[in-house]
Design a binder for these strands. Structure first.
Lengths: 338, 338
DNA sequence: CTGAAAGCGCTTACAG
DNA sequence: CTGAAAGCGCTTACAG
């Protein structure tokens, strides 16, 4: 076996192999690889030919080490298969497309995973930037992140001093409740998330808006009308069945998410209640299932939030001043459940 | 400013800083980092202390270059926000959890993106292994992949000689159709995907099973009963409305996916048809929306397919012989639309 | 324009 | 057990 083919078989060609074959220095090869103008046409051609003949491809691993960057951005997402999270992710992917960054995904469903994510994953050494979706950050995680000097953008999470893209959840809760009030309802229940170990706040924020709207309408919010279950359709359904079986049942329900609202719809059907005649229901998010179920809801710009978050992160990585673009406003989508 | 804090401020500490502070060689530091037993307790302690004092963390970037690996696996997924794909991804993430591999996600929605994925992304240099979901691989992409010698596993895609986890789509189509036949239907329509530029085959495979089941029941499949739309609920709904408006309309529909079946359900409602009395409907996949819509369907083990694919890939990376575990069988889930 | 050399931050034979 | 050195495959001043 001649030396060339042996080499070709043993390991992928390196920049040195190319230099040797083209009869130039590795610096020159690197320059043509990086489209530097400081290369004569003559050598450029020779190098290019050697590259083609050898089937050479530059090692991004080595390049990144040399350049001190990763060419990758990380996304930390809790329960990433949740429809609303998927939709945000979709926006992130859209914004990243064609930008030459790899997307590293990190799912977190437990506090252990969150700690892992921030300790091992959120590192300057591995990532050029980090996007955190819907996950509140703890104090000590924050100091670690700060030490990392890693460009960081929060989507659907708040933190003073950090770049973030958020909606006004309380306002959304108000809109939903107002909608129900305008339809003449006076006994409106709220069904939201039980506090999670991960500390999500959206559900409670929306409930605050609900209470505010009630008060403005002269109705004192009742604890007995506030229900909370672990997130998910099934849990919501079970809880709602209990709620609707009560003697004094509400005439309308505001659910803190579409997923839960669909559970309420199922409970209503199980209880033989007509929707919206016997029970009006409104959700939050406007994910696809809401359209399918004919569910009235508050639309929040999910995909757009991911897209915007990623765009801001990319700008930050490029050292461009952080743009503060606005998300489209929340709006009530009226369908047949209200 | 003293040298130490200057250094600390300028850049993260390296293994050399640790060695210097501990008064040992970098090799020794590397050894304690890698839990080599070839280090005296004395030095191990000194090194550990220096690490703690400096807040040193090893650069995985440099480590990977030195070791010649990436510690990452790539996932190529078409339209990754499609519920069935999300569910497979979920399985992949589950199998990867705690295994120390990063997950690189690559979405492909166009043939350009697919070419990109295989050219720039599917590289030994960037990945330790690759998982391809639901995407047929072209001939020349395959030769490139082979040259890469990258461990590769296909999920929901076939290719002779490659590790893969697949279901028998034609059989699934048979099951669905048989179910409808057993309910007494004789005029059964099929609604599936229009051929996609990406070359997905599941829909046509399922249609073949449908035709087979009909023939076995002594019914000759009619071209007029085979309908195809671009994937998606809306397209299916529109197509189905046309189909149901015909003079001679079918009494049942087998849709090649739940997403499309839900579109059929919407069309039925729009046409004032009762389900299942006037029109029976069965889908395929058993994604969450099927449960919500009360849709009868053929359940395929989506999450399990991702989990299994990832497990096989991990084993292959570790040089373990490829295990050929089986997926749970396809089964008809009977709900209220049939 | 160009090549030799140093450097990115690790790992691992090699020779004690 | 241990340190000095070479090597992983690039990039980029530096000195022509």
């Amino acid at each position: 076996m001649d030396p060339v083919s042996r080499r070709a078989h043993d390991r992928p060609p390196t920049i040195r192999d190319v230099a040797r074959r083209a009869g130039v220095g590795v610096g020159t090869v690197s320059r043509v690889l990086n489209q530097s103008p400081l290369v004569s046409v003559d050598r450029r051609d020779r190098v290019q030919q050697a590259i083609d003949e050898l089937g050479y491809r530059r090692s991004s691993r080595a390049r990144n080490l040399s350049l001190g960057r990763s060419q990758a951005i990380g996304v930390v997402a809790p329960f990433f298969t949740t429809p609303s999270v998927v939709e945000r992710l979709r926006g992130v992917v859209e914004a990243l497309t064609g930008r030459g960054y790899d997307l590293l995904l990190f799912d977190v469903e437990t506090i252990t995973q969150r700690a892992d994510a921030f300790r091992h994953f959120a590192r300057r050494d591995r990532l050029d930037g980090l996007l955190v979706l819907s996950l509140p950050i703890l104090e000590d995680e924050m100091t670690a992140l700060r030490a990392e000097e890693l460009p960081l953008v929060l989507v659907d999470a708040r933190r003073p001093g950090l770049a973030q893209v958020v909606i006004d959840d309380a306002h959304g809760g108000e809109l939903a409740t107002q909608h129900l009030l305008e339809r003449g309802h006076r006994s409106i229940a709220f069904l939201g998330d039980l506090p999670s170990p991960l500390g999500f706040t959206a559900s409670e924020d929306r409930r605050r808006g609900y209470a505010r709207a009630l008060r403005r309408a002269g109705i004192e919010p009742e604890r007995a009308l506030e229900w909370r279950a672990p997130h998910g359709r099934e849990h919501a359904r079970q809880l709602a069945e209990g709620m609707l079986a009560r003697r004094r049942r509400p005439t309308a329900v505001f659910a803190a998410s579409d997923v839960q609202a669909v559970g309420v719809l199922e409970a209503a059907e199980a209880c033989g209640l007509r929707v919206p005649e016997d029970l009006a229901v409104i959700g939050f998010d406007d994910i696809e299932i809401a359209a399918v179920a004919g569910l009235s809801t508050v639309r929040q710009p999910l995909r757009e939030s991911g897209r915007l978050g990623a765009a801001i992160l990319l700008a930050e990585i490029d050292g461009v001043e952080r743009r503060s673009e606005e998300l489209p406003p929340l709006v009530v989508v009226e369908r047949r459940t209200s």
